[in-house]
């Protein structure tokens, strides 16, 4: 009976058959389903697929991975939320859901889920077309101020990394530029290399190789210290120390389950993911790509999420980019 996964009726039928009690005793007794909210080949996908084999070893069951994309991840998130709260369906997600309510994308977000493990975070890198005259973040910002509304930034859509970082830079003074949305970091980088956009902010994982090959120019890392994978690129705080109050900031990748799954299942999952994300093969892969391994769960993860949401939502609100006031959503102002 327990080997069956129903799509809609599980919720109604499971208590009837006493399956919940049985499942809790020996979790997990069958394959799990991992729903990845971003497409195959993306950073969320790669991180998730890289950690899962190690987690499976610790868990003793397979996790069948499936990409359910669309709606900046809202489709996958909504799907997992519609599944029974038995711990058998996991959400492999990124940072985007924290902004769903502010941007009116969905009424669900990570507050309806419990973080099983925050796997890794990436550090935004500010890059420019290699023929542009700027060599530092300061030169870029001053050029934008001299030529308002002329310089093109490639973005990844509202709430994306490029959008938020440019808003954060804009919080320090006038910063009027053209923001051209592309389908993702890859297409954005392509446009930078072709000269169709002048600069953008990209995750360290996606851009490190392009910088190393000299195809694009890295102006700064959006961090308080340089990155091991890009040792010669100065931190953004070197030019603008006041940005430090917003850091650390950047995309992150993790695994969530529904909020009301049984405690026993949650503990099993948290432990399995902690072991899996500590596997040297995984950590090497992550740091090699310029990411920072987090491997956090529980209260620490909740704190990280709350702070990230508060900083980002209020920056968007101050820039007039939020569609719903974070105050009405009870998102506290960053302290």
């Amino acid at each position: 009976m327990m080997h069956r996964r129903t799509l809609l009726g599980g919720l109604a039928a499971a208590p009837l058959l006493g399956a919940t009690a049985a499942q809790a005793q020996a979790f997990p007794s069958r394959d799990l389903l991992g729903v990845i909210q971003w497409g195959a080949g993306g950073a969320t996908d790669v991180t998730g697929r890289a950690v899962t084999p190690h987690v499976e070893a610790a868990l003793g069951q397979k996790i069948v991975l499936q990409n359910r994309t669309g709606g900046t991840g809202a489709i996958g998130l909504t799907y997992v939320h519609g599944q029974p709260s038995d711990g058998y369906t996991l959400l492999y997600g990124a940072e985007n859901p924290l902004l769903y309510k502010v941007l009116n994308i969905s009424r669900l977000d990570y507050t309806d889920f419990t973080p099983i493990c925050l796997l890794a975070r990436s550090v935004p890198v500010i890059v420019a077309n290699k023929d542009k005259p700027w060599n530092t973040l300061k030169e870029l910002v001053e050029d934008v101020r001299r030529n308002p509304g002329r310089i093109r930034m490639a973005s990844t859509g509202p709430g994306g990394q490029a959008h938020v970082v440019s808003t954060m830079i804009g919080s320090m003074g006038p910063f009027r530029h053209i923001s051209v949305p592309f389908d993702g970091e890859g297409p954005g980088l392509t446009a930078i290399q072709g000269g169709h956009a002048d600069w953008m902010t990209v995750g360290s994982g996606a851009v490190a190789e392009h910088v190393r090959a000299g195809r694009v120019k890295a102006l700064a890392v959006f961090n308080e210290a340089p990155l091991p994978s890009l040792p010669n690129v100065p931190p953004a705080t070197a030019d603008y120390p006041e940005l430090a109050r917003l850091m650390p900031w950047g995309s992150f990748y993790g695994v969530w389950a529904k909020k009301d799954i049984p405690d026993a299942a949650r503990e099993k999952l948290v432990a399995a993911f902690r072991t899996g994300a500590a596997n040297p093969q995984f950590t090497q892969l992550m740091t090699g790509n310029g990411n920072v391994v987090m491997n956090t769960s529980g209260a620490e993860a909740e704190r990280f999420l709350a702070r990230w949401q508060s900083v980002t939502a209020w920056i968007l609100q101050e820039a007039g980019a939020a569609r719903t006031d974070p105050a009405t959503l009870n998102i506290p102002r960053p302290s």
Binding site: M1, R4, L8, G9, L17
Partner: peptide, 21 residues
């Protein structure tokens, strides 16, 4: 291809478990 085909909930208790899998 490990596609999880719809399993059905109406007849769960009635039919023997192996039949619908």
């Amino acid at each position: 291809f490990t596609v999880v085909l719809p399993q059905g909930w109406l007849l769960r208790g009635i039919l023997p478990p192996g039949l619908l899998q």
